[in-house]
């Protein structure tokens, strides 16, 4: 990346995505600067996961452009595998390779994609497993680990590729409540270390404390963007206010008249 003005790590503009008749993203503009942690919040079905998956092209956008690390991934001739090498992704369902050990999970792509030697790959893998507190489980198979441990391995696997951007797709949504903290702790450390992160999450406390900026999405639109403490602490848009009230105070009896949030 050349540039006097630093280029954003991710630049999404005019992004639209339809699944058949259903338009899930209706013109999204989002940027993520280097070193920034951007959290995407919003009701389920609002398109936030689809937005994230368009960044590394797990979903093919219908129109609009997505630039990642200076490469336009919406260009049909982009070498997407090369771009993905620099973009780590963590999934809601962990998606560890179930037939391989924890260590193999972390070395497979290093060896086949980055062409690192076994020794080097294992060294990098172990360092990252150490970072997520699981170096002692290197020879376990995924099925022997708890959900929280699996998710931390998934983070170590992504980090082993030395990514410049990490995408998190609801990383704690499939976890038992007592395991959420371990994973969020690892993500917080990662943010503190300066990693650029785009995080789709339902953890409002994480978004407020760790996020630099928060994007609130609803119904395929970005409704509100701003500093994390502002969007979550003092949202300006009625839809953001309604959503946050429901999330932060779920047992509250809601007023169902007037500008009620959609379900």
């Amino acid at each position: 990346m050349s540039a006097d003005t630093p280029r954003p790590v991710v630049r999404v503009s005019g992004l639209r995505k339809s699944f058949g008749e259903r338009e899930v993203l209706r013109g999204i503009d989002v940027e993520v600067q280097a070193g920034e942690v951007v959290c995407v919040i919003g009701p389920s079905g609002s398109g936030k996961s689809t937005l994230l998956r368009c960044v590394n092209l797990l979903e093919q956008p219908t129109s609009g452009t997505v630039e990642v690390l200076g490469a336009e991934v919406t260009d049909p001739d982009v070498d997407i595998d090369r771009v993905r090498t620099h973009v780590g992704m963590v999934f809601q369902q962990f998606n560890l390779f179930s037939h391989r050990s924890v260590l193999d999970n972390c070395t497979m792509a290093q060896r086949t994609v980055l062409r690192r030697s076994r020794a080097e790959a294992e060294q990098v893998a172990l360092a990252n497993l150490e970072r997520v507190g699981l170096a002692d489980r290197a020879h376990a198979v995924p099925a022997q680990l708890s959900g929280g441990q699996q998710q931390r391995v998934a983070i170590a696997r992504a980090l082993s590729m030395d990514p410049q951007l990490m995408l998190f797709d609801e990383p704690t949504s499939a976890l038992d409540p007592e395991l959420v903290g371990d994973v969020l702790g690892v993500m917080r450390d990662l943010a503190d270390a300066g990693m650029t992160m785009l995080v789709v999450t339902h953890e409002m406390a994480f978004a407020r404390e760790v996020g630099d900026r928060v994007v609130f999405m609803d119904d395929g639109h970005v409704v509100e963007v701003g500093p994390a403490h502002q969007v979550i602490g003092a949202p300006r848009e009625p839809r953001t206010q309604a959503f946050l009230q429901r999330v932060l105070d779920p047992t509250h009896r809601h007023d169902t008249s007037g500008t009620s949030p959609r379900v």
Binding site: D81, V87, F91, N95, F97, V113, M161
Partner: peptide, 10 residues
């Protein structure tokens, strides 16, 4: 499983 592998650049 496929998405995880592809997201690693495989």
């Amino acid at each position: 499983q496929v998405e995880a592998a592809r997201s690693l650049g495989m």
